[in-house]
Design a protein around this nucleic acid. Structure first.
Length: 673
RNA sequence: GGCAGCGUAGCUCAGUUGGUUAGAGCAAUGGAAUCAUAAUCCAUGUGUCCGGGGUUCAAAUCCCUGCGCUGCUACCA
């Protein structure tokens, strides 16, 4: 019989910690990093305590978006995710995220566990199959999930709404209810087709979920949240997708694949398995339902549903261990604005690491996150001014300067060796007391309170230094100056140990000076008689100007424009181009072309026909009345048999085209100069 | 639309089961000090605790309502 959870004392129970798996079709941004930093601090703290901790993460590599991204770039999904893997591991490494393994869901282990869990669900009678009707695009030869069709809202008639919810009237509906539906990739009208899918009857698991979630798995606020979902009644969960799909085939359903959200969380399990294999450990000691291990997940509030409802049901029905704790964090906002891909206001981890002009920028971001993180799902604000203020105040001024003024003093007045004297008993007791509190705070992921206490301790050190005036006593009463130095260097060390999970590099600089590596309990002992190595500054101030590289448009010299700038011209050459404002009065698709639209434009004095290659991005009927800019003196040309007397200007944003127009309506035929 | 959460000093946030003059950090102003990274230390807050109504001896805290913001709303990662 395997030991139960309670029979193994906590320090001996292995601990498995995860961050959510980043999706492999995009780069790591500051939001991902917030979670990774939160997790990494937890892991580093537990390791510092001496506990056996494994930090597991992986790329989430399956699903339609990956497949489509690969098609668009003309590469295989495997090549796409390989590239993502490289980028992701590089970006995390730049912020000292210490994974024990960063694997992939596109692995043999993951296929094995996906099939195992599917079998488990089936064995317990939780899988049913049912025929459903879905849109199918005959051009792209695929079924269209709700986000891959757009059309007119069946409730309010708003145009360009996705297949699940109307952004205008907020009503939800079935994709097949959408009017004038069209495929988001090719713009063609889809047909409806029937297909058989597998569903997990989550509704049968209500009692189990209620029981599981009443423990202390979740923060209070999250528990209420989920209660309402359960109260509203759990639905069946569709776990299959039709071919073509990048993922794992369902063993007993030809042409069907596991939905990416089935195999994504299984990545926690399969990556652990791979780590165990590499380390010569036994996976059963971690994930078997009776294993002594504790499993802790860190996730964002956007994926709570999957982790608290689907995931426990999957694990429970296949004989695996349930997570003992799920920490849910909020989102990161930038200077008051939401970080969002669509608004383009999100900052990539790589850009932060490369463009914030300070050698400790990455470490400072870790600190900043920690200084604002508690165990709630509240959103966090990242404002560069606040970042600069907090980092400079605590790391550079209070702790960095206390270290420097102490170390330099010891160097000059005590030959670089910490004097042989006792340290102040009251401050020693305070350090001890803070150590106990901070230990508990780290365990509860209340990092901002950790930072508050460290700051308070650092301030006490500075005050002590200030009050004792060792620069005077060193001349009159060297023994007293010696005691001050011992005390201050010990306080610096305590701060460094306390901060080590948050700012490992800062701690490492002091470790080099004292000549050994800190474990958690090292915050308490005295450095008396310790011979100090050369003094390195622990933290240098950062200036707001360091953020210039990421806050505005990127500076021209950091990155070449893409595509490269054309050769220089003088104004007379530009003058040869006659640009005019025109209003589109009629628009229709050019026959047999997906890209070309035939436009009739009003130039004021005359009307013209212009053919534009924007058919993939604009619907003809939506263009009528729109004012655009055209090249009016372009030599007429024939495109697909249609005459074009000019060219419409559009900006190429990635692979998208966006029409240019004037800020306010102006007279047709207005010249642009 | 439904559900959930939030709205406290210029900024970021604490405020435990309702209980004395509502707190911290940063910023700001003044001062002290000069060992040190122009760093440090001390002093200084007249804040409609989003508005309105209610319960109570007592409300930032509980109830109702209005406004604003955010999230979720499952076959979208």
């Amino acid at each position: 019989m395997a030991p139960s959870k309670n029979s193994t004392p906590e320090p001996l129970r292995p601990l498995l910690v995860t961050s959510a798996l980043p999706y492999a079709n995009a780069d790591i941004h500051l939001g991902h990093l917030l979670e990774a930093v939160q997790t990494d601090i937890f892991v580093r703290f537990q390791k510092l305590l001496g506990r056996a901790v494994t930090y597991v993460c992986a790329d989430d590599t399956h699903g339609t978006p990956i497949q489509l991204a690969a098609i668009r770039r003309g590469i295989t999904p495997e090549a796409l995710i390989a590239q993502a893997y490289e980028n992701h591991t590089r970006d995390y490494a730049a912020f000292n995220i210490g994974f024990d393994i960063f694997y992939t869901t596109n692995s043999p282990e993951n296929r094995f566990y996906a099939e195992t869990i599917y079998e488990g669900l089936k064995r317990n009678g939780l899988i049913v199959t049912r025929e459903i009707e879905q849109f199918f695009c005959e051009t792209d030869r695929r079924f269209l999930p709700d986000r891959f069709i757009v059309g007119v809202c069946p409730r309010c008639g708003a145009a360009d709404q996705y297949g699940d919810v109307c952004e205008v009237c907020k009503s939800t509906y079935e994709p097949t209810e959408l009017k004038q539906a069209r495929c988001i990739t090719c713009g063609k009208t889809p047909v409806t087709r029937k297909s058989t899918h597998a569903f997990v009857t989550l509704n049968k698991c209500e009692a189990f979920l209620r029981q599981y979630l009443t423990g202390d798995v979740l923060q209070e606020d999250m528990r209420n949240f989920i209660d309402t979902w359960i109260k509203d009644g759990l639905h069946q969960w569709c776990i299959t997708r039709d071919a073509p799909y990048f993922g794992f085939a369902v063993p007993d359903m030809p042409g069907k694949y596991f939905y990416v959200w089935l195999d994504a969380p299984i990545g926690y399990l399969s990556s652990s398995a791979r780590w165990c294999k590499d380390q010569g450990k036994n996976i059963a000691d971690y994930w078997d339902e009776n294993a002594s291990a504790e499993i802790v997940h860190f996730i964002g509030k956007d994926i709570v549903y999957f982790h608290t409802l689907f995931w426990p049901v999957m694990l429970h029905n296949a004989g695996f261990k349930l997570p003992s704790r799920i920490f849910v964090h909020g989102f990161l906002n930038m200077s008051g604005e939401k970080m969002s891909k669509t608004r383009g206001t999100f900052i990539l981890a790589r850009d932060f690491a490369e463009r914030v002009a300070h050698p400790q920028a990455a470490e400072y971001l870790r600190f900043f996150f920690a200084a604002k993180l508690g165990a709630t799902s509240a959103d966090m604000e990242l404002d560069p001014h606040e970042f600069v203020n907090r980092v400079n105040a605590v790391l550079a001024n209070i702790i960095g300067n206390l270290h420097h003024r102490t170390a330099i003093f010891i160097e000059r007045s005590f030959n670089g060796a910490v004097p042989d004297a006792a340290w102040d008993a009251s401050l020693a007791a305070t350090a001890q007391e803070y150590g106990k509190k901070i230990e508990q705070l780290y365990k509860n992921v209340e990092y901002k309170s950790v930072v508050e206490l460290v700051q308070a301790l650092g301030t006490m050190g500075n005050k002590y230094f200030q009050d004792k005036k060792p620069w005077e006593s060193v001349k009159t009463n060297p023994d007293e100056a010696a005691a001050v130095m011992v005390t201050c260097i010990n306080i610096v060390k305590a701060c460094a140990v306390f901060l080590k999970p948050i700012t490992p590099n800062l701690a490492a600089a002091l470790e080099r000076q004292v000549g050994f590596t800190f474990a958690w309990n090292d915050f308490a002992f005295s450095l008396r008689n310790c011979k100090l190595g050369p003094t390195e500054k622990l933290a240098t101030p950062i200036d707001i100007a360091a953020f210039a590289g990421i806050m505005g448009p990127p500076p021209a010299d950091t990155k070449a424009l893409e595509p490269p700038l054309a050769p220089e011209i003088d104004i007379s050459e530009f003058g040869k181009t006659d640009l005019r404002v025109a209003t589109i009065v009629a628009a229709e698709r050019v026959k047999k072309s997906d890209k070309l639209l035939k436009l009739q434009v009003d130039l004021g004095a005359e009307k013209r026909q212009v053919v534009a290659g924007i058919g993939k991005f604009y619907e003809p009927e939506k263009l009528i009345g729109k004012q655009v800019v055209i090249v009016a003196n372009l030599k007429p040309a024939k495109l697909m048999g249609e005459t074009s007397q000019g060219m419409v200007l559009a900006a190429k944003d990635g692979d998208k085209l966006v029409l240019l127009s004037s800020e306010v309506l102006v007279a047709n035929g207005s010249k642009i100069s």
